[in-house]
Design a binder for these strands. Structure first.
Lengths: 129, 129
DNA sequence: GGTTGCCTTGACGCCGGTGTCAATGCCTAA
DNA sequence: TTAGGCATTGACACCGGCGTCAAGGCAACC
């Protein structure tokens, strides 16, 4: 399978596949031409990469999942290194959700404040009741 | 007040202040030197910018808040344009929290799956009970 | 042999806020 | 006069996952 076909089948671009290869995530043999020749199994790998990227992982984080797949597992998530990454990401996401929740509170408070201010009869001068 | 002093007082860098000016957020007169000369009120503006940036707003979003401050309001949040931005940001944050919550679910599920897989007695072969 | 289409490597662009370096000018104190 | 500290503008670097263009080689069909 040449790079164009893999790109089409994986729903991505040749540029992207070369980028993954450059970062050691996807493997290719070379024809006498110099053309990349892909095993069918690489399609699975590319799909794994795409879904993990879509989930917010970075390429570095994805490395162990690919290794896990190559080791013959039916899923890339079951290996110890993958689980470590999953745990770490879960913690990150939790932290992020916490931050955003706090931020949400602040935004609500500021909005309410602004609305209250607008309804106040003395918003053009200092209020001294 | 010269740029160095304002930077120190605002807890940021001269580079940053010039960047804000370049984007029309901070104002400065010029000495005969060419040196920037800042009003005291700009300190307030810079603080507003910094806190909004820290909250995740972009410079474009911050513009109306600064305008609101310059219009003489005691807070940058009370003007209609600012409120629009606040509402939009609140919606964005809500959406983001939703996405992250979904992602969290997926991560948990995958972790649980991986753990279950590890505890399974047949993780090196196909299970056919 | 010419056209079309796929392949190759290399390199710049983007986004956004800032660090950092360069080359140069102004001000002040010793 | 000179040193050193602050000012100026301009421009590159970063991060990360690509898009996109350039310049060229290879394959296959007319």
């Amino acid at each position: 399978m040449l790079i164009g076909e893999l790109a089409t089948r994986a729903g991505t671009s040749t540029r992207t596949l070369r980028y993954y290869e450059q970062h050691g995530l996807v493997r290719a043999e070379r024809d006498a031409n110099g053309y990349r020749q892909y095993e069918d199994a690489e399609l699975r790998v590319v799909h794994e990469i795409r879904s993990l990227l879509a989930a917010g992982f970075g390429l570095e984080d994805i490395r162990p999942f690919v290794a896990c797949l190559r080791a013959g597992n039916e899923s890339g998530h079951v290996c110890p290194d993958s689980v470590l990454v999953l745990r770490r990401k879960l913690a990150e996401v939790d932290g992020f959700i916490g931050q955003l929740t706090d931020l949400r509170q602040q935004l609500r408070a500021q909005l309410d404040e602004a609305v209250a201010h607008r309804e106040s009869p003395c918003h053009t001068q200092t209020c001294q009741p």
